[in-house]
Computed example of a mutant assay.
Amino acid sequence: MSDRSTMPTRIVAGTAHPGLAAAVAAVLGLRPAPCDVERFPDGELRPVVHGVQGGDVYVVQPTGPAVDDHLVELLLLVDACRRAGAGAVTAVVPYFGYARQDRRGRAGQAVGARVALGALASAGADRLVVVEPHTVALEAMSPVPVEMLTAVPLLADGLAELTPDEAVLVAPDLGAVKPAEHYARLLGRPVAVVRKTRLSGESVHAEELVGDVAGRPAVIVDDMISTGGTIEAAVRVLLAHGAAPDIAVAAAHGPLVEAAWDRLGRLPIRCLLVTDTLPAGGARAVPLRVRSVGPLIADAVARLHHGRSLEALLMRG
């Protein structure tokens, strides 16, 4: 591959979240490259990109709901950029759908993350940039390098403004312990941990709590909220252990299905803080605050383009 810094930087926006792509481009002093995505009556997509020949191209396309449609569009956009003569193509996937499918839970299951990563490499992506993926093992499954950006400092700044100093940070399951500890270091607050068992895609059973929350407000921190089942189970455990009915929730991603808002609306949650890795939409039964990852992604793009280290922006395993 040629030296990226000698190529013009180009941002290509998919249809999943053009506002975020425009925000990234604006921070870099650019405009997204012209791109048309034609959709046939049967749903088939045909993207056409312009002005990317010889460029260092960054295709911005989260693969949130509808995950399959947006993933296929991303694959076609990457291929279109390659066929238009791009010098390098990076897939910027702020929310990476299928990241939760990183292992088989039982015989006969697919490993969706591995399939999606292989397809991106086959389409022509040189590199993948994601924000707070569900698993740090993503790169081990990928044929191309994966840069995993952290949104924790961005969200921690928001929590410092929205929550009291005496609030306890709560990991709603064991997988969220390391991010919770990262929040704790930044905010100087204690951590509690809920142990859960997932019964199905929508049903979660929380069993016990490690840590002291009695009489204190709590902040539940997680990588994503989809159905709200994990949050509901954690809230029930916190209240049973005497936490104040003054709970905030922070997550990098909010692919909230419609039923999640009803579920969260029945709980004593006074604030939900997410980033804009996905477009905010739907009826909101809980006050929503959104912090933009546009500057974070733009910083990563600039560093990649000029061959500088991303170390300060990355998740810790």
Results as ranks from 00 to 15, higher is better:
residue 210 V to A: 08
residue 268 P to K: 15
residue 60 V to Y: 06
residue 62 P to H: 00
residue 22 A to F: 03
residue 226 S to I: 00
residue 229 G to F: 09
residue 199 L to P: 05
residue 241 H to I: 06
residue 106 R to D: 04
residue 81 C to D: 04
residue 131 V to N: 03
residue 209 L to V: 12
residue 256 L to M: 08
residue 272 L to W: 05
residue 67 V to G: 00
residue 238 L to W: 10
residue 185 R to C: 00
residue 9 T to L: 14
residue 305 H to M: 09
residue 262 D to H: 10
residue 37 V to R: 10
residue 221 V to K: 08
residue 162 L to G: 01
residue 225 I to R: 01
residue 184 A to D: 12
residue 183 Y to H: 01
residue 70 H to M: 09
residue 237 V to I: 15
residue 278 L to W: 11
residue 20 L to P: 08
residue 181 E to Q: 15
residue 94 P to W: 10
residue 208 E to C: 13
residue 189 R to V: 08
residue 87 G to W: 05
residue 87 G to V: 06
residue 95 Y to C: 00
residue 132 E to T: 14
residue 129 V to K: 11
residue 232 E to T: 02
residue 74 L to Q: 07
residue 16 A to M: 07
residue 234 A to R: 06
residue 254 G to F: 01
residue 202 E to S: 13
residue 53 Q to A: 15
residue 68 D to N: 15
residue 196 K to S: 13
residue 193 V to M: 10
residue 184 A to R: 09
residue 33 A to M: 04
residue 146 V to Y: 05
residue 158 G to W: 11
residue 9 T to I: 15
residue 104 R to G: 12
residue 291 R to G: 02
residue 88 A to M: 14
residue 293 V to L: 06
residue 158 G to D: 08
residue 80 A to Y: 04
residue 164 P to C: 12
residue 283 A to C: 02
residue 313 L to Y: 09
residue 54 G to I: 11
residue 93 V to H: 11
residue 161 E to L: 11
residue 280 A to I: 02
residue 12 V to C: 09
residue 188 G to C: 11
residue 316 R to T: 14
residue 275 T to I: 05
residue 57 V to W: 06
residue 55 G to N: 06
residue 65 P to A: 15
residue 126 D to S: 14
residue 6 T to S: 15
residue 48 V to R: 15
residue 123 A to D: 11
residue 251 A to C: 08
residue 150 T to N: 00
residue 86 A to W: 07
residue 19 G to F: 04
residue 250 A to C: 08
residue 66 A to E: 13
residue 81 C to L: 12
residue 292 S to F: 05
residue 136 V to A: 10
residue 203 S to V: 13
residue 31 R to K: 14
residue 90 T to E: 02
residue 275 T to L: 03
residue 286 V to H: 04
residue 161 E to W: 07
